[in-house]
Design a protein around this nucleic acid. Structure first.
Length: 360
DNA sequence: TCTGGGGTCCTAGGACCC
DNA sequence: TCTGGGGTCCTAGGACCC
């Protein structure tokens, strides 16, 4: 039997929350992100701001040049987390099969519950109404027989959209879309596909799977399957956390020396605090450095036994730093990530979807 | 224009073991 | 003297997502 998968995506989430909390921002172009003088980028832009060409991940300096009257707001992740929890609770009242992808997005598997809930369209409208009534935010909803179709559907009529792709029409729904619409096809894969003559999902669907495999290997097979409208990945409410990390881009480049060492110490404290709060230990520490010219390197070290203490983690990171940096190097970013995680005695790793948000 | 921070997953080479 | 195959772990880099 065909599944019924919902993808729900809050519209311009961070920016919408700011407009909700600060009524004077409503109707005005709002950009959420770090200040331009600290090399910030846009984390979210209100629809008013998007009209000026402002997009997520754009350097803030450029965004404010495009729209000088835009209001810039620094992100408040704690607040976004609160609202996210409210929204995920609304979803979980419908089904326990809720898989959050981030603070503002989730899949719901409502297979077998639809009839009792009055049909897909009624269910979708009810969810949208409840989110609006309880949080004041709009959510775009896509419904299909699998994740790929539901996710792409939710994106088609933003904001406040509702798109239902009926069973059997998946392939036709996807066919006219550009290849970039497929999940996992980014700038590089898009270029490779275009150069191979594929511009739309339909063109991939009509090709032989071997043609796409020749470009991307095993991954190509999955892309080809998606293009057919097929995707049997389940909605998984629980995910084991695989890594915990912190990194910062400095407002100005830092030379190798005591200042960089101090930043490393700060970063180690941040990561160890998060490890401790989640009750987990790590066996591997990854040091990440970005040179002034944007070249990025990582250096990692593993230990036989898991650790979580500041002395251990900072010590490993500092040793890696000493082995790596040379006199005269200048860095724009430094980060510490911990992987090969294990529980610190609790018996299980924390699930990153717990409570609907990252435990930060 | 000048490029964040939180992640996940994959690939590829080399060490090491049987 | 030259030469295996499979499996696992570690490391480094990169694509991609929100």
């Amino acid at each position: 039997m065909a599944r019924t998968i919902i993808h729900a995506d809050l519209d311009a989430f961070y920016a919408s929350v700011e407009q909700l909390d600060r009524p004077e921002l409503r109707g005005r172009p709002v950009v959420v992100g770090g200040p331009p003088e600290s090399r910030g980028v846009v984390a979210a832009a209100s629809y008013e701001a998007r009209r000026f060409g402002i997009r997520s991940a754009m350097p803030m300096s450029r965004a404010l040049r495009l729209c000088p009257q835009a209001v810039r707001v620094s992100p408040r992740f704690g607040r976004y987390g609160e609202i996210s929890r409210q929204v995920m609770a609304i979803f979980r009242a419908v089904t326990p099969l809720v898989e959050p992808l981030s603070l503002d997005e989730a899949f719901l598997d409502v297979t077998g519950r639809v009839k009792r809930l009055g049909g897909v369209e009624a269910l979708a409208r009810r969810l949208k109404r409840q989110v609006r009534e309880r949080t004041g935010l709009t959510v775009s909803v896509g419904i299909g027989t699998n994740k790929t179709v539901a996710k792409i559907a939710s994106d088609r009529e933003k904001p406040d959209g509702l798109v239902i792709v009926r069973p059997g029409t998946e392939r036709d729904f996807l066919a006219p879309l550009p290849v970039r619409a497929l999940w996992g096809v980014g700038p590089k894969a898009e270029t490779a596909l275009n150069e191979a003559g594929f511009r739309t999902v339909g063109e991939i669907a009509e090709a032989a799977p071997q043609q796409v495999e020749a470009l991307f290997g095993e991954r190509g097979r999955q892309i080809w399957e998606m293009a057919q409208g097929r995707d049997d990945r389940p909605v998984e409410p629980e995910h084991e956390r695989k890594s915990v990390g912190a990194e910062t881009t400095f407002p100005r480049d830092l030379a190798a020396g005591p200042e960089l060492r101090q930043e490393l110490s700060r970063m180690a404290q941040e990561v160890c605090g998060r490890l401790a709060r989640q009750g987990i230990l790590a066996r591997t520490v990854v040091l990440k450095l970005r040179y002034a010219n944007f070249r990025t390197i990582t250096r990692q070290a593993s230990r036989p036994d898991p650790a979580g203490g500041l002395e251990e983690i900072r010590g490993m990171a500092a040793a890696l730093l000493d082995q790596t940096v040379a006199e005269g190097d200048r860095f724009r970013l430094l980060g510490i990530h911990c992987t090969n995680l294990s529980d610190g005695g609790s018996g299980q790793l924390p699930l990153w979807t717990e409570g609907g948000v990252d435990p930060r």
